Amino acid sequence: MKEYEIIIETINPCGGDRHSQQEIIEANIESPEAFVKEKGRFPIIDKIENPDGGVVIVTGDGKGYMVRYTFSE
């Protein structure tokens, strides 16, 4: 397991990124994908791996509601 700092941004279609609700947590997890599949409420839309080792996973309902998870070791 690795320890990650996770930024969870909940984005609604009316407010967009500017008015997202943010939460920061720390967790020991097997993988970012497993965490999102277990804890997330929407299916995974996109996954981006940053050169610094961080991972960004975007989930959504296809109607404008999205949750973006940013994982940093």
Rank of each mutant, 00 (worst) to 15 (best):
P43L: 10
Y4G: 01
G60N: 08
I29W: 03
V67P: 07
M1L: 12
S31N: 06
E49D: 14
E49H: 13
D46K: 15
K2G: 09
I11L: 02
D52H: 02
I7V: 10
I57T: 10
E38T: 15
V67I: 15
G64H: 07
N50L: 14
E3Q: 09
S31P: 00
E3C: 05
P32M: 03
V36R: 01
I44W: 06
P13R: 06
P51K: 11
I8C: 00
S20H: 10
I44T: 12
D46A: 10
I29R: 06
N12W: 14
P51H: 06
P32S: 04
S31F: 04
P13L: 09
G16Q: 04
I7T: 02
F35T: 04
E9P: 01
V58I: 13
G54H: 04
R41K: 12
Q21R: 06
E23P: 02
H19I: 01
K47G: 00
S31H: 11
E30G: 05
I29A: 01
E5D: 05
A27T: 02
I25G: 01
G40L: 04
T10M: 02
G53R: 11
F42L: 08
I57Y: 07
M66Q: 05
C14F: 15
V56T: 15
D46Q: 10
G16R: 09
I11F: 00
G15M: 03
K63T: 08
I57S: 08
N12I: 11
E23Q: 09
E33C: 12
K37T: 13
Y65Q: 08
I24F: 13
N12C: 14
D52Q: 06
G54I: 09
N12E: 09
P13G: 10
F35V: 06
P51S: 12
G64L: 15
G40T: 11
P43K: 12
F35C: 03
G53K: 07
I25H: 07
Q21G: 01
E9A: 01
